[in-house]
Design a protein around this nucleic acid. Structure first.
Lengths: 191, 191, 191, 191
DNA sequence: CATGAATGAGTTTTCATTCAT
DNA sequence: TATGAATGAAAACTCATTCAT
């Protein structure tokens, strides 16, 4: 792994936990064990690093969620179940205390930094699109009525997940997320 | 309105838009047109002000949502519809650009400041409880089957709203919220 | 003297000697024996201080050169002689090593900071105007032929002084200035 | 042109416009499209480069002004006229915005770096000497009275030119220079 | 010769908080 | 109560220089 990627990976963890603004360059330097000069050799500014971190998040979503799940050969029900499963595993590992890496930045940065917002918007857009397509497949299969507005429901599913993660974080209780995931499975008859 | 309340009200607006950490005491002094001495007369620290702001949020929720809606004489369906309506109106006024005042602080502060987290937790707890009770009423009325796990669904409804607001903020598009609200109405047969 | 004026006075000396860019805020803090916070309480930035220093220079020129010499009741020859005398005294005190406070900033800042340039331009404009008026008086008195272009000559006199000071500074020899002043007196028959 | 000379030429332009201190090594690397290693192969430090740049200036003056003009076979009046003409052409090309390459460094560096100062002093010394000699020729020819102090007047002429360029730069108006050059021609009856 | 990664001291600036009046 | 001067630690960023390759 290149030094630059190493810095991004370390920064991502810190930013995920503390937030972008509360993360100081020094926090990163200490964690990565590098000097100021080296940091600014790879990134022109904290903002530049922040964008690189979001970009890294985009790549990971593309790879681990979109490619491995939605663009796979699984049947639609399995796709959605795998997505829900992955969500739970991710937050179980992290003890749920930090919330959603994308959602956190969405809330912290969207209003005041359009460059961040656009990258985050892209992730949500893609995510929703993939779910929408999957719901469309299910409609075609007769799993849902053809009158179903798949876009609305795709947005709702993402909203429920993000909201569930938010609640889990603020209530310090992973059951808030598991319950929301249960309700999704129930409402969309995924199990 | 007392000077102290005035400071809280002004600070709340700024913190709502910029976040707690990104809001400086100077931002508040400028907006409130007061000096440092006056600020520190009323609040012992920025943290103290922050808690007062969350407390103010708690009070408003208690009054405008919990008391006026859930502790009213409306029938349960109306209660839920009024809650959804209020959510939409609030974000329409604010153009949706700042997201949810409670959710924002939940994400920004929960992990690193337990005092903030507890107050926010309390708001969500109460909100969820009221919805749960309302769902229970509906179960009693036969609107939902008696097997329904009202707690789970109450959590889900709050999650959808918070997630919908989060999406609306990051996508800069109020339709993300309206769509999610529609799905709630649809799924719980509120209209 | 107010703290702010004190900072300006100290900064002016340092900037005069080291130049604006080479003067660090720390240089000023050390010399003025104040903390960073205090500095930024009085000045919003280094640039802001720089402008205040030039402004201070403007005021001093207005007072010590323009008001006391040109707007006095002296006859025109005396005015010009007093101006030349003052120039020499100023640089004798300072050992001539730092050059002209205005000329230095003119050269250092004019090209890259228009706000500095405008203030400096104003000083030279006024200075040249006063000399021009004085030359006009001398033309009226028949001391110079009526065909004399007083504006050109006023510019030349300022140029000679500034150039003389520049040479004195770079050659580390005050005689370069005294010689130039002599030539001015000679050419304009001031003695 | 050798790589080293190339770096000097590029650096000279940048330093001429921005000043020595405000010019960073990176500015030069970017403009010259070279790496750090190559720079430090040719120059031991920024200071070393600075001196090489002044040396380059010395050489150019020697060649283009002193050799081609003063050490030529032109008659003295023509020499001085050519010198004035060259001054004007130089600053017309450069739009006058950057001032005199030698004068700028004289003011910026003289007081705090003796090695720079000595090289700059040398240029002015030679320039003044050549003018002095030329004036002496003119005295011999009876163009000026034998009582004329040619050294003083040589210094004055250089002072006027440097001062005229300084005014032109700070007033952003080339007429300040042309006027001063006119006055020189007038006072020394060169046209 | 040449690259560019790495160093680290130094720069300007911000900011919560305290203190004298 | 109220003002705003003062403090000082910490923030983001720059830059000349060195070093491993």
């Amino acid at each position: 792994m290149s030094k630059q990627q190493e810095i991004i990976t370390i920064s991502r963890k810190i930013i995920y936990s503390k937030g972008y603004q509360a993360t100081s360059i020094s926090d990163i330097l200490d964690a990565a064990n590098i000097g100021k000069g080296q940091f600014y050799h790879y990134f022109s500014s904290k903002h530049d690093l922040g964008l690189a971190v979001v970009e890294d998040l985009v790549k990971e979503c593309d790879q681990e969620v979109f490619l491995e799940i939605f663009q796979s050969e699984f049947d639609p029900i399995t796709k959605l179940n795998k997505m829900l499963k992955r969500t739970l595993v991710f937050h179980t590992d992290e003890e749920g205390k930090s919330g959603c890496p994308v959602g956190n930045l969405a809330i912290e940065m969207s209003e005041h930094d359009e460059t961040f917002r656009l990258k985050i918007q892209y992730i949500f857009d893609r995510w929703i699109s993939f779910i929408e397509e999957t719901l469309n497949e299910l409609i075609k299969q007769g799993h849902f009525p053809s009158t179903m507005d798949s876009k609305k429901h795709a947005q709702s599913i993402v909203a429920m997940i993000e909201g569930g993660v938010l609640l889990m974080k603020s209530q310090k209780d992973i059951s808030f997320l598991t319950n929301v995931l249960d309700v999704i499975r129930e409402q969309y008859r995924l199990s």
